[in-house]
Amino acid sequence: MKATCIECYFEFEVDDDVMLGEIIECPDCGTELEVIEINDKEGEVVLQKAESEEEDWGE
């Protein structure tokens, strides 16, 4: 199934047996994405950013 990361717009494949609510990591930018819609007809899933606590980055 096709998926597009909503953060970096990288297009990638996800397993066909992907489930609603499943958390997927974008292969390019590593953002945690949640599956919010599975469109079998189009062979596409819709993703939304999953909450993840902000990590300190050495300020």
Binding site: C8, Y9, G30, S52, E55
Partner: peptide
Amino acid sequence: WKPFRKMYNKEPFIRFVKQPSG
């Protein structure tokens, strides 16, 4: 992202780095 990906998506030696953590 659109123009970046359009020009570099198939470039073997360009890596996009814009990540939420690490």
